[in-house]
Every structure is written in structure tokens, then in C-alpha cells.
């Protein structure tokens, strides 16, 4: 019996996490939330919404949280694929479901979300520009013709979950993940996703300056 697991990296999202998880669990009941030592009651909120919560004793970053989630789901024999889904409510559950279907239909190792395959996603020009630069970098270093290398919404097959070993604790993990996919010659596809930039997520989202940190972390690993 196929069982899709959802890994949600979470850091201080108490005001939205419960509704995000409830929405997810309507169609994807198996949710593990990796709480990165939030200082608010995100963990309790997530638990009350029915997620399994794995808590880091110290803040390690989004990449480290994903890896912890991967190692958790590896222990579940029924797991057939894993969805990575942001806690801040920017992703659409329907997109995730479509991507799971696509992974199964086309027997892929990974389906990566992209906000640049259609024009549903509305974001600032600067952010668009920085994301384009980052994607260009990934294309050059991996030879994979991606359109969006930093999308948090992905579906990963069981086999691939056992191959991934993210060492970039913070945001540079997105490029690292693509590196490892290309290294393993995994089969992949991009899928159009709609990322919603609400006032809440904009106020919490990443500064475009963080691109500099990511670059340094990639170069001096």
C-alpha cells in the first residue's frame, strides 16, 4: 500500500502551522513536522493538528531539518514517496498531490516544483532576478536545465530518500540537493507550482541578501 509522507521544516510558524497541517492532512494524512527549536508554540500547534513532531534541541537550519525529516521517514517501511512542504502556508496542497501523481505515473526519482513555469506566482522583480541568478548557477554547475532551483515543494521517491545526504544546514541545501540528484543521475521533472506571497510570508521570508550567504556556503563547504 503506497504511503506518501510529508516532511515540513518549521521554525516559528505558530500562527499558521495548524491550518497548514490540517489542510495537508485532508489528503495527505502522514505529516512529520521538524521543529527547529522554535521559540513560540509551533510544536504544540503542529501536534494538535495531528502531525508527528520531531524536535531539534537547538536551531540548525532548514537544510538540517529536511535531512532529519528524511532520516525519520526512512524508518517507515510503508513510505513510498516524500513531499517536502513549507510551513509558512506558501504552498498549495493540490500542487503537491499533482506532483505525487506525476512521480508515480512517470516513475521518476524526484519532481521539483517551479514557480517560473507559469505566471501564477506573483513576486517582486528583485526576488525574481536573484532566483534567476541562483538557477543559472545551478544550471552551470550541474548541467540540469532547471527553471527554479530554490523551491521548497518537492516530491522524492523512496529510493532517492535513501541516497540524499544534506550537509548544508541552512539555505544552501537547495543547491546541494540538486547536486546530489545530478550525481546520482536521478530521473527528474519540474512541475509548475503556485507560491503565494502573503504579507505574513513576505515579512518572514528570506532577504535577497541571503543569496550572498548561500553562495559563500556553497563555495567553502
Amino acid at each position: 500500500m503506497a504511503q506518501t509522507w510529508v516532511v515540513v521544516p518549521m521554525y516559528n510558524e505558530a500562527s499558521v502551522i495548524a491550518s497548514v497541517i490540517k489542510e495537508l492532512r485532508k489528503s495527505l494524512p502522514h505529516v512529520v513536522c521538524v521543529d527547529d527549536c522554535s521559540t513560540d508554540d509551533s510544536a504544540a500547534q503542529a501536534r494538535s493538528a495531528g502531525a508527528i513532531v520531531v524536535q531539534h534541541p537547538i536551531n540548525l537550519g532548514q537544510g538540517a531539518s529536511l535531512q532529519t525529516g528524511f532520516e525519520f521517514v526512512r524508518l517507515i517501511p510503508e513510505m513510498t514517496e516524500v513531499v517536502t512542504f513549507d510551513a509558512d502556508g506558501q504552498h498549495q496542497v493540490q500542487d503537491a498531490l499533482d506532483m505525487v501523481q506525476r512521480l508515480r505515473d512517470e516513475k521518476l526519482d524526484i519532481v521539483i516544483g517551479s514557480r517560473f513555469l507559469d505566471n501564477r506566482t506573483d513576486m517582486s522583480g528583485l526576488k525574481r532576478f536573484v532566483l534567476r541568478l541562483a538557477t543559472g548557477y545551478t544550471r552551470i554547475t550541474t548541467g540540469m536545465a532547471l527553471t527554479d532551483a530554490h523551491n521548497g515543494l518537492r516530491v522524492i521517491s523512496r529510493d532517492m530518500i535513501f541516497e540524499l545526504q544534506l550537509r548544508q544546514n541552512r539555505m544552501a541545501h537547495a543547491s546541494e540537493l540538486v547536486d546530489q540528484i545530478s550525481l546520482h543521475k536521478a530521473t527528474w521533472a519540474e512541475h509548475p507550482t503556485h507560491i503565494v506571497y502573503t504579507e505574513y510570508s513576505k515579512s518572514k521570508g528570506q532577504s535577497v541578501l541571503n543569496a550572498i550567504n548561500i553562495l559563500v556556503e556553497i563555495i567553502f563547504k
Partner: peptide, 23 residues
């Protein structure tokens, strides 16, 4: 960098062990 890697590995172990107990 090395210290961070070690610390990450340890924190992850703690997190996963606690999750087991909880379940």
C-alpha cells in the same frame, strides 16, 4: 565547520531518539 557537522549529527540523534520515545 567540523564542529557544526558534529553538533548537527548529535542534535539529529537526540531529535530522532526523542521522536521514537514519543511514538
Amino acid at each position: 565547520r567540523r564542529l557544526e557537522n558534529d553538533l548537527t549529527a548529535m542534535a539529529r540523534q537526540v531529535a530522532l531518539a526523542r521522536a521514537d520515545n514519543q511514538q
